[in-house]
């Protein structure tokens, strides 16, 4: 099953958050599965239409996802996913 790691910044809101292994064949499925374990986290990653928030990035095996609108990028059993926040000032 794909593995996912998330930026530590999200631990502020989800203190028990750590690396996860989740059943998913697309990024959208992975985000939904993650929300099942950490209710509400989906709203931090995507907007109410399911599109990736502007300042959030998702990488699959080091490559940024292509489909930011519906998160349709495919995952396989060995995929390693990293969910990061873009850096910003202030």
């Amino acid at each position: 099953m794909p593995k996912v790691e998330l930026t530590n910044h999200l631990k502020r809101f989800f203190p028990t958050l750590g690396p996860q292994t989740l059943p998913a064949s697309t990024v959208a499925e992975l985000v939904r599965a993650l929300d099942g374990r950490f209710p509400g986290i989906m709203g931090y990653l995507v907007d109410e239409r399911g599109s990736l928030r502007k300042h959030v990035n998702i990488f699959i095996d080091g490559e940024m996802v292509v489909d930011r609108v519906s998160l349709g990028d495919a995952l396989d059993e060995r995929s390693e996913v990293f969910i990061a926040q873009a850096l910003s000032g202030g």
Partner: peptide, 24 residues
Amino acid sequence: DHGHWGQKLQRSRDQGQSWEEVKA
């Protein structure tokens, strides 16, 4: 107004001792 994580709504019924996130 989280720059990265979207708009969230928080509510406290005990004068700020605890907060709960309400679905935005």
